[in-house]
């Protein structure tokens, strides 16, 4: 066991040491090592093996990839990114059932004057997930204002362009093909 190795070794060692004294975990509790209310759950972790007694494979569910049409995400939809990283204004999501891209726009968690984006990408087949955070500089919070929508763009939109407006009025474009945020005159190149 790697996790809680310290708890486990201490518990085991104390149990061995304290046989004559009637201690065990009670000794650990007495010195504040393991809070009593957590002791049973932590002991349960300590009992987890590294092999399974069942050697037969379980039935695997059929892969059921369902596309998610490109859609905007309002403030009622949970944001996975911590507000200490991003104070999100809105988001956008698309999936073709195999790969998924979600973009969240807003401001830096520690400075509302700094525009920021977070891009979550998942490869649902190969099992990869990445999180990319992109700063826009001192633009104020970003809001997604133009993005591909609907079921016809479930794959193409994943490398398309997302239009954004900053709190200071600037227009920006996120090129999902290369993960770059373009400012000002650069945006004309991708429209």
């Amino acid at each position: 066991m790697r996790r809680l190795l310290n708890v486990r070794l201490v518990a085991a060692a104390l149990a061995g040491l304290a046989v004559g004294a009637g201690g065990g975990f009670a000794v650990a509790h007495a010195v504040g090592v393991v809070p009593a209310e957590k002791a049973a759950a932590l002991e349960r972790l300590a009992s987890v093996a590294t092999t399974d007694s069942n050697t037969e494979p379980a039935p695997a569910p059929a892969l059921d990839p369902r596309p998610i049409p490109a859609r905007m995400l309002g403030t009622d939809v949970p944001v996975p990114v911590s507000p200490s990283v991003l104070q999100a204004r809105n988001g956008w999501l698309v999936s073709d059932g195999k790969t998924l891209v979600a973009v969240y726009a807003g401001a830096a968690g520690d400075d509302p004057a700094v525009g920021r984006l977070a891009i979550v990408r998942q490869d649902l087949v190969s099992g990869r997930q990445t999180v990319q955070v992109i700063g826009a500089g001192r633009t104020g919070a970003l809001t997604i204002t133009a993005a591909p929508l609907g079921s016809a763009v479930e794959t193409s939109a994943q490398t398309g362009n997302i239009g954004l407006r900053a709190a200071d009025g600037r227009l920006l474009v996120l090129d999902l093909g290369n993960g770059k945020l373009l400012h000002g005159s650069q945006t004309a190149l991708v429209r």
Partner: peptide, 27 residues
């Protein structure tokens, strides 16, 4: 509490779950 590891462990991946159906979520 006794000393834990002195160096960072290798990271393991956590997942944000996105799904449009219960069967998709299971797969």
């Amino acid at each position: 509490f006794p000393a834990a590891a002195a160096a960072a462990p290798s990271p393991v991946t956590a997942w944000y779950m996105y799904g449009s159906s219960a069967s998709e979520l299971k797969s």
